[in-house]
């Protein structure tokens, strides 16, 4: 056995140990346990993103415990779970947004197709152009609607001519379903739009760079039901051309928009399966308890 193998064994042992500790914790509190291995089918053939044994630490606190899952091409994956379960943290690993937090440390292997996301040689700028992100609260820049959408293409030099840029902006706004509402006032500030419009503007801004994957961190949590419906509609449309991972609080939303669903609990990935299966025949008690509303 060489050193690397020994390390692996050691790490596995530590991993198991941690689960046992957590189990004991859970047994007393909820009378439920976290499975040693994720239940269901977390892996797919020929995935767009492949995550294996991902651990995330904030300083000394571990937020994510050995999560492994795949995200397939052009599919919508929903990450659900009670608040504080680490689903947003996990999402932010996928385009290295956690780099902006000093105390955050990520372990494990994360791949975008064949590219190791945490390869020190990899360029974050390039990665984030391929893996875009939409945030919880709509955060348009205090600039005009046009400049908001054109921001990404401009910094990445995606358009050589003004007409190219105009085209990118129009296409992105159309895809985001915002074009008809704002085409007459592209010069007015993006911050003047309604909450739902702002979030669609942020989505347009993200897809203007033509990313391969779009990460959405509870994109509807700050919106009213009508705006939420529009965004969900949009997500379904976008899934034709993009791979989407969406963190959501709402099980209904997950059921409506996603093909597959992953259930996180206290930083562990408990169960992952087809959305239908997760919601109709959950295999793990924790998942079932969550879905039936026993906690959350």
């Amino acid at each position: 056995m060489d050193i690397a193998e020994k390390m692996n064994v050691f790490q596995d042992a530590v991993q198991v140990d941690r689960r046992v500790v957590a189990q004991e914790h859970m047994m007393t509190e909820e009378n439920l346990y976290i499975p040693e291995k994720t239940v269901g089918a977390p892996f797919v053939d020929d995935p767009k993103m492949r995550m294996r044994d991902v651990n995330v630490f904030y300083d000394t606190d571990q937020a994510i415990h050995g999560v492994s899952l795949d995200i397939g091409k052009n599919e919508v994956v929903a990450l659900i779970g009670p608040s504080g379960c680490g689903k947003s943290t996990f999402l932010r690993c996928m385009n290295r947004m956690n780099d902006t937090i000093d105390i955050c440390r990520v372990e494990g292997s994360l791949h975008l197709e064949n590219q190791d996301i945490y390869d020190p040689k990899l360029d974050v700028v390039e990665l984030r152009a391929r893996v875009g992100m939409v945030f919880q609260k709509p955060n348009p820049f205090p600039k005009s609607i046009y400049d908001n959408v054109a921001y990404g293409p401009r910094i990445h030099g995606l358009a050589n001519r003004k007409t190219d840029l105009d085209e990118i902006v129009e296409n992105s706004l159309r895809k985001a379903g915002l074009w008809d509402e704002v085409k007459d006032r592209l010069d007015s500030p993006g911050t003047g739009l309604s909450g739902g419009q702002q979030q669609r503007l942020c989505i347009a801004r993200t897809i203007a760079v033509s990313p391969e994957v779009v990460l959405m961190d509870e994109p509807c949590s700050a919106l009213d039901p009508i705006a939420t419906a529009k965004i969900e509609e949009l997500i379904r449309e976008l899934s034709e051309s993009y791979t989407i991972a969406i963190v959501t609080h709402s099980m209904q939303q997950a059921a409506r928009v996603s093909q597959r669903t992953a259930y996180f609990h206290l930083g562990w990935l408990v169960e992952m399966n087809d959305t239908d299966t997760v919601f109709t025949k959950p295999q793990h008690e924790l998942t079932e308890s969550y879905i039936t509303g026993r906690f959350g």
């Binding site: 700028v125 390039e126 391929r130 030099g157 990313p211």
Partner: peptide, 16 residues
């Protein structure tokens, strides 16, 4: 490799 990636790579040196 997508068009975006190609385009982005071209600008990287200058941007850094």
């Amino acid at each position: 490799m997508s068009v975006t990636t190609e385009q982005v790579r071209k600008t990287l040196a200058r941007r850094y």
